[in-house]
Computed example of a mutant assay.
Amino acid sequence: MRMEHHEEPSGKRITVEIASIDLNFQAFELDTGTPTGGKIAKVAGFKADQHPCVMQWRDDGDLEELRAQEEADLRNGKKFIVAESDGTNRITIEGEARDWPADEISGAVIRKLGRIAAERSIYLERAGEPDRLVEDGDIIKIKKDGVEQFRSSKPDFWELNVQGKKIVSVTPVISVVDALTRAGFDPNAWIIILKVQGQPKRQLAVGDDIDLSAPGIEKIRLTPTDVSNGEARPAPSRDFALLEIDESYLDGLGLRWETRTSDGHRWLIINDYPLPAGYTATSTTLALMIPPTYPQSEIDMFYAYPTVQRVTGGAIPATEAVQSIGGLPFQRWSRHRGSVGPWNPQRDNVATHLALVESALAKEVGE
Results as ranks from 00 to 15, higher is better:
K79G: 07
G33M: 00
V54T: 08
T312R: 11
V134W: 02
F150E: 06
P317Q: 05
G254D: 07
E247H: 06
K363Q: 13
N89G: 05
F25G: 02
I122S: 05
R260P: 09
E364N: 04
T223S: 13
R202C: 00
P329R: 11
D86Y: 08
E358S: 07
D178E: 14
Q149G: 02
K195G: 03
E244Q: 14
I210Y: 08
N349G: 13
L356K: 11
I217R: 04
A189Q: 14
Q56V: 00
W57T: 00
N271C: 07
R310V: 03
S228V: 14
G207D: 12
T181K: 10
E64Q: 14
S228Q: 11
F240A: 02
Q50R: 07
W158G: 07
S175C: 09
K219M: 09
I142T: 04
D73T: 01
P236S: 03
M55P: 00
P276E: 14
V43K: 00
M55S: 06
A360T: 12
G254M: 14
T285I: 08
R13D: 09
P276C: 07
D208S: 05
R151M: 04
V357G: 05
A179L: 05
G278A: 03
S228A: 09
L63A: 10
P276K: 05
S324Y: 10
S169P: 02
R202W: 01
T181L: 01
S248E: 11
T15I: 10
Q197Y: 08
N188Q: 08
R67A: 12
G264Q: 10
